[in-house]
Write a protein that binds this DNA or RNA. Structure first.
Lengths: 227, 227
DNA sequence: AAAAAAAGTAAGGACAATCCTTACTCTTTT
DNA sequence: AAAAGAGTAAGGATTGTCCTTACTTTTTTT
């Protein structure tokens, strides 16, 4: 079997986590003598952007990215999460495999990251042990994708209900659940207040909710796994 | 020098993190031959409570606890965070040294954890590398307390402003910043709506804010490090 | 390509939450 | 005893939300 060297970028603002990833790669290449890794780690959006642009310009190769979603935003405020970085990577470096790794475990976020990035790996940090990390690496290299337990569970919930709600419904529910006001929604969504109200009424009808305020709606939406 | 064995409990729901802690303890006891550790790890509130109660009942010794704040809540909903566990530990096992370790890096939370738990160590996860973790262990054993970079920076900000705002002001700002409505605040705070409004007006006056809605107030409060 | 259905917008009125003012009570300070 | 500080209570003004109706635009069906 021929030798292969993979180049890896780890984007995560927790040094203990990046260290754990590195350890896993080390271990893996010891078990598989023909495979080695060249690993870089970055801890914020600005440096990540610099590295991605550099790789693109110099036509270097990047095989694998581990991507945390919650990161300190860039100084100019343009890149506010790992999701934005992922979009950039998909655009500039389409052959790079992205493994999303996050603490978010609510359906809405996982779902929207899936749609926007379509990653080759998706890990919820609560799920993964050092051992599972090594399995992840193996799967990513030989037979992607790899999704961790919680992700698979959320995806299953999703499939059963997916025909009902679209992205905008989901976003409305999500925004309401974090306390956004109706009057502020038109600047977040491409819809008028009247349109949003119509959708809300539709959702309440769908879920069989009579109450006038939104608590019950959000409760049921959470229960059904939409947020 | 006599031998000493410390008993340690690690409470954190991320296996990669608990593993990193363990590795640090291992390393430390290899460097210090007279010191050994007996380490347990737990990943949720329920199991933690069981362990704490067991240690208390059987009058066992617990020297050091690493305590994550954001944890899956207990099934009966009574313990909703590591802070609650910390209170229990302080009460039942007053000689146990608590090292809080969390991803929260906003002033309000750090401040309120300080007041409620008065921990011997306080780590923001973004700050700590494997190397710093070993220093932490050394400091905790020989000369506590140990606070990581961000914590010290937040504490300094605090001191300069502390005379201005009390706990309730802080809590009002915090609740508003996460979207809580005025009408719901009286059930969270020991104050009437009128009283809360009065305080809000007072705060706006203090910060020199003319605008009628709360965005600017919350912005300035964040800037000044109150939330 | 016309008709029907679905989704969004606009404008109005009813209702509820927020904000502000004034007047009163209670506690602490001077 | 007076003054200052903090909270409560009740009102009215203002703003946000919800709902209805009528109209426009887009999509689907035939």
């Amino acid at each position: 079997m021929e030798n292969k060297k993979y180049s890896v970028l780890i984007i995560d603002d927790h040094p203990l986590i990046t260290e754990a990833y590195k350890t896993a790669f080390d271990y893996y290449s010891k078990q598989n003598e023909n495979i080695t890794f060249s690993i870089d780690t970055v801890q914020d959006c600005d440096t990540s952007m610099d590295m991605i642009n550099d790789i693109f310009k110099k036509k270097k190769v990047l095989d694998i990215v581990f991507l945390d979603i919650k990161l300190p935003p860039s100084k100019d405020g343009k890149i506010i999460s790992g999701e934005d970085l992922g979009l950039k990577i998909n655009k500039l470096l389409p052959n790079t495999k992205i493994i999303v790794s996050t603490t978010f475990n609510d359906n809405y976020r996982v779902h929207s990251i899936f749609k926007s990035l379509n990653p080759d790996g998706f890990l919820i940090k609560n799920d993964i042990t050092p051992k599972e990390l090594i399995e992840t690496i193996d799967t990513i290299i030989n037979d992607p994708p790899y999704y961790s337990k919680t992700v698979i569970r959320l995806l299953r919930k999703q499939v059963a209900n997916d025909f009902l709600l679209d992205n905008i419904d989901r976003k409305i529910l999500y925004e309401l659940s974090i306390g956004t006001r109706m009057k502020d929604l038109p600047s977040i969504l491409p819809l008028s207040i009247a349109g949003i109200e119509k959708r809300k009424r539709h959702l309440k009808h769908l879920f069989n909710i009579k109450s006038v305020d939104d608590r019950e709606l959000l409760l049921v939406a959470k229960e059904k796994g939409f947020i």
